[in-house]
Amino acid sequence: MSNEPKMTARHVNVSYGPKQALHDVSIDIEQDKVVAFIGPSGCGKSTFLRTLNRMNDTVASARVDGDIRLDGQDIYAPEMDVVQLRARVGMVFQKPNPFPKSIFENIAYGPRIHGLATGKADLDVVVERSLTRAGLWNEVKDRLTDSGTALSGGQQQRLCIARAIAVDPEVILMDEPCSALDPIATAKIEELIHELRGRYAIAIVTHNMQQAARVSQKTAFFHLGTLVEYGATSDIFTNPVQERTKDYITGRYG
């Protein structure tokens, strides 16, 4: 693996209408690493995450400035194909959002639209592989035709992760993937993140300090739309440079 960062963001500003939500954020997202975004509510974590796969395009009032690259390629360049980009940079949402289709169809959806699998046999392979990687295969292999919405919340979230994996992304973005789950389901997702690390670059937004400390190698602390501090997770949690980071981590505000 090269030491080039997978994604780079430079001087990113985002505003919703007249309201600026992010100020001059610069960050590198490295291959083989999990980066955690932490910070108080409303500080712009989700906004930043959504600039990385251009989901902000779906918000009519959002405006993104700055330079964001994936493997050195400007993702906001006019010739960039958003469909391609989102296949390479997958996303998992805060609330599990399986499609109201069968478990099989949920996973097969992405490979079908991107033409990654042709024929039932191919799809079967992709579906099994994705569910296995998401640690869900053993639980659902006998009920692939059941509706995805009939699973438990934690299973649904792993289904969504499997769905994202199915199109072979290079980066996976997760926005508070555990905030709607109980501790056991959360532990499973964290375990899953450990296993996925190395295969994908992962960025995860979380409100849970312990979770950030457990799953990530690098941590970025946002506050009021700015990136306050970014560094190795161990440093951020034991020896933060900025006073604000220290206050937040020790729970003095948040």
Binding site: M55, V83, R86, A87, G90, G110, R163
Partner: peptide, 22 residues
Amino acid sequence: PSAMRDGSLAMGATSSETIRKV
């Protein structure tokens, strides 16, 4: 729910694919 639409778009589906299939 708009989460359904976002989920599909985030998979790299186009608007019309999202409408037709989800």
